[in-house]
C-alpha cells in the first residue's frame, strides 16, 4: 500500500503538490488525471525520488510504501527505484540490442546464464516475445514506438518492482499499441501496484480501479469507474474491430 500524508512537493517556493493525503491500495490500478502542469508527473517522480537531483526540489510530509517512509534520510534510493519502476511518456531504449535492453537493469544483480530465461519471461509478460524472439540481437531502436514502449516496460519488470508508475505511457503511441499497453497493464495488476497518469478521462476510467483527479497539486474526490461500454477508452473503441493482440 502507498500512503501520502500531508505530502508537499515544491520547486523552491512554488508548491506543485499541496498537502496531499490519500492511500493507494496494493495490487490495483489507480489512474490520475489532470491538466498539464497540475502536478501529475511531479507526483509520480516524487514516488521514486527521481527529482532528487533537481535543484531546489524539496518535499514535506511523508510518503510510505508498505509502511516505510521513502524520504527517510537512511533510505536506499537505488533500492527504492528498483522497487518502484517508472515508465516514461516517450519510450527510451538504449542504443543496444533488444536482449541487452531487456536485462539492462539487472546485469550486476544476476549471472549471465540467467539472462535468456529472464529476457523470455519479461518479453512474454509484455506480449513482445513472439514479435522479437528471432531478432533479439538487433538494435532496439529498430522497433516501432509501441514495441519500444513495451520493451521499456519489460526492462522495468526485469528489475522486479512492486510498484509500477506509468507516466502517460501511451501518449505517443498509435491506437493498436495503446490497446496493447492497456491490456498489458491489466494483466500486471495482480502482481503490481500500478499508478497510471494520463490526461484522457476515457482511458483512465476504462483501465483503472480508481480514478483520482489532480488539480493545482491537490487531489479532488475520486470516483469509482463504472465499466460501461460507452465509457470505454477511445482507443479501446477503435480496437473493438481490431484483431486480438498476439498472446
Amino acid at each position: 500500500m502507498i500512503q501520502f500524508k500531508n505530502f508537499v512537493a515544491a520547486f523552491g517556493g512554488r508548491k506543485v503538490i499541496r498537502a496531499l493525503t490519500f492511500n493507494l491500495p496494493a495490487n490495483s490500478i489507480t489512474a490520475i488525471i489532470g491538466a498539464s502542469g497540475s502536478g501529475k508527473t511531479t507526483l509520480l517522480r516524487a514516488l521514486c525520488r527521481m527529482n532528487d537531483r533537481v535543484k531546489n526540489f524539496r518535499v514535506e510530509g511523508n510518503v510510505l510504501i508498505d509502511g516505510m517512509d521513502i524520504y527517510r534520510p537512511d533510505t536506499d534510493v537505488y533500492a527504492l527505484r528498483r522497487n518502484v519502476g517508472l515508465v516514461f511518456q516517450k519510450p527510451c531504449v538504449f542504443p543496444k540490442s533488444i536482449f541487452d535492453n531487456a536485462v539492462f537493469g539487472v546485469k550486476e544483480k544476476m549471472h549471465r546464464k540467467e539472462y535468456p530465461d529472464l529476457v523470455e519471461k519479461v518479453l512474454r509478460e509484455v506480449f513482445l516475445w513472439e514479435e522479437v524472439k528471432d531478432r533479439l540481437g538487433e538494435k532496439a531502436t529498430t522497433l516501432s514506438q509501441g514495441q519500444q514502449q513495451r520493451l521499456t516496460l519489460a526492462r522495468t519488470l526485469a528489475v522486479g518492482p512492486q510498484v509500477l508508475l506509468m507516466d502517460e505511457p501511451t501518449s505517443s503511441l498509435d491506437p493498436k499499441s495503446t490497446a496493447a499497453i492497456e491490456k498489458l497493464v491489466q494483466s500486471l495488476k495482480s502482481r503490481h501496484t500500478i499508478l497510471w497518469v494520463t490526461h484522457q478521462h476515457d482511458q483512465a476510467h476504462s483501465i483503472a480501479d480508481k480514478v483520482l483527479i489532480i488539480e493545482n497539486g491537490q487531489i479532488a474526490p475520486f470516483e469509482t469507474p463504472v465499466a460501461r461500454p460507452e465509457q470505454s477508452s477511445s482507443f479501446t473503441r477503435v480496437l473493438q474491430n481490431v484483431q486480438e493482440y498476439p498472446e
Binding site: 521514486c48 527521481m50 537531483r53 537505488y78 533500492a79 527504492l80 527505484r81 528498483r82 522497487n83 519502476g85 517508472l86 516514461f88 516517450k90 527510451c92 538504449f94 539492462f104 537493469g105 521499456t152 526492462r155 522495468t156 528489475v159
Partner: peptide, 13 residues
C-alpha cells in the same frame, strides 16, 4: 538526459 533518467529509474547507482 533521457538515458540518465532511464538508468536512474532502473535503480542504477
Amino acid at each position: 538526459e533521457k538515458y540518465r533518467e532511464a538508468g536512474m529509474a532502473l535503480g542504477l547507482s
